[in-house]
Design a protein around this nucleic acid. Structure first.
Length: 299
DNA sequence: GTTGAGCGTT
């Protein structure tokens, strides 16, 4: 089949974009996600029933309905609210996850000097990015600062960066955290990286990327060489990663087990180095022994 | 007029 393009849009009434198909007439989800980051599938309006229909998606490959893409405009699907384990329902669950983009939220700023004003706060935090709002909480009667406040940024990336480090404000070290959470510069942010156990040797980074794309935007796939029967997949969104932990997923007919990627070492160097987007080195401590047993049995 | 872990008057 000759190369053809299908028309894909973010919404039925939006301007469509042409996405190339593969030689066999299928479309790779990655081709769609290249134009629509975070996409997890396609749908279209069935001309007969006038109902929306989903396009068959098998391990990252989109298949034409009736083996013919026709002249329809296909609409991008994005991950809805990610499924979460019951015990993980907390403040973060209120955050709506849409196309890999997270809204910012107010951050509490702890440890402010008594003298620090809202203008001081704004001047300081603007060096990280655009600031929407700052507050210094004060005693109503005296007007004295209570030593803490709030800040909100326009960009989620700015928020991530600000939470990940300590702040010297008017001569005191201050911490910025999500309200009512203990996640701060001392506590690593919830990992965006998952450990994929029971991988087989024929699974490629591309295939894993294709597969995991259905859950959210994938930013990295790492397969240790030589073959060690596991891999790491990093998502743009930590909630996607966390939601998958504990699951057994079928990839190429093989049941793989998803668990949290643990920091490789907890030495001080890495704690210091952990910057904007969390730790660099990860391993999976929980299943090391299990893997060793499996490998031992195999040989 | 003080203080130093915390969690937001409107």
């Amino acid at each position: 089949m000759s190369e053809l393009y299908i028309r894909v849009a973010e919404d039925e009434n939006e301007e469509p974009m042409e996405i190339p198909s593969e030689d066999d007439g299928t479309i790779l989800l990655s081709s769609v996600a290249a134009q629509f980051p975070g996409a997890c599938g396609l749908r279209y309006r069935n001309p007969e029933s006038q109902c929306m229909r989903g396009v068959r998606l098998v391990e990252g490959v989109l298949h034409a309905p009736e083996n013919d893409w026709g002249n329809l405009v296909y609409v991008v699907n994005y991950p809805k609210d990610n499924k979460r384990k019951m015990d993980e329902i907390d403040a973060a669950s209120a955050v709506k996850v849409k196309r890999g983009f997270q809204k910012t939220s107010d951050l509490i700023v702890l440890g402010l000097p008594w003298k620090t004003s809202e203008q001081d706060l704004k001047d300081y935090f603007t060096t990280f990015g655009e600031v929407i709002m700052v507050q210094v909480k004060r005693d109503l009667k005296t007007g004295n600062s209570k030593g803490f406040g709030f800040v909100r940024f326009t960009e989620y990336e700015t928020q991530t960066k600000v939470i990940a480090q300590r702040h010297m404000i008017d001569g005191r070290w201050c911490d910025c955290k999500l309200p009512n959470s203990k996640a701060g510069p001392d506590e690593p942010m919830r990992s965006r990286k998952i450990f994929v156990g029971r991988c087989t040797e024929d699974m490629t980074t591309d295939e894993l990327r294709q597969y995991f794309m259905q859950y959210g935007e994938v930013t990295d796939v790492f397969i240790p060489k030589p073959f060690r029967a596991f891999a790491f997949v990093t998502f743009a969104d930590d909630q996607v990663a966390q939601a998958l932990c504990g699951e057994d997923l079928i990839i190429k007919g093989i049941s793989v087990h998803i668990s949290n990627a643990e920091p490789k070492h907890n030495n001080s160097r890495q704690m210091m180095d952990r910057g904007r987007f969390g730790a660099g080195g990860f391993s999976q401590v929980g299943e090391c022994r299990y893997l060793r047993v499996v490998l031992f049995c195999c040989y």
